[in-house]
Amino acid sequence: MRDKVTIRLFRGNADGGTETDYEVTTFPGMVVLDAIHQIQGTQDSTVACRWNCKAAKCGSCSAEINGRPRLMCKSHVEDFADSNGLIRVHPLKTFPLIKDLVTDVSINYRTAEKIPPLTVSEDIPRPFKMQQIDVERIQEFRKCIECFLCQDVCHVLRDHNRKDGYFGPRFMIKIAALNMHPLDSENRLRQLKEEGGIGYCNITKCCEEVCPEHIHLTDNGIIPLKERVADYYYDPLKILIRKIVGPKKR
């Protein structure tokens, strides 16, 4: 392992910016976040980055390392340095920049608000009885640490900038966790189809590739939801049956 690596860091704000090189001293197990801290502590205390736990549990230190959306605390320096010992670190590209590595991710919090919380009918007995086999599927989605890397990489938001039309992968699985909850009584399909814009997703699976929690966002979340929406809105046979028999009770 090399003694020193160069961090080529994006410095700037919404008005513009440049890449600046910083040389940092390495140590075993060093991650990119350590390198940023070293820059802050010894070279330039104005370098802005978000971080909290440094253990891949809070999802604060999202950035793009060598062009890949990653958590900085989970990216080892030795894995990312190229043959010249160079690592490029940029802020998330999908969100408006505040400064250096800090972006304005508040849109995600506004989206979260639009999703109705768990609604359990009054006549379900308390305390709840649920079997492990019924909750394990939604537990996967609840592992989400809200690092918003999936939102960053999703091309609907990133390239097409359709934040007005699509909630994004993080909120698809948030709805999935509610929709698949054994006791939830809220009908969420209309929101998924209309406001949530599940149709914008073309299941190209980048969200799944970048997820640091290894959540299968598309296979276990978005695709099953698409099938549920299809059941209700697109499948002519199902629609016909529903017309005849009447809506199914939940």
């Binding site: 700037g12 919404a14 590209k93 408006p96 920049l97 304005d104």
Partner: peptide
Amino acid sequence: YSANSREEGRAPL
């Protein structure tokens, strides 16, 4: 959310 919303101004990356 007090985070200043600057949805339009993405970084010139």
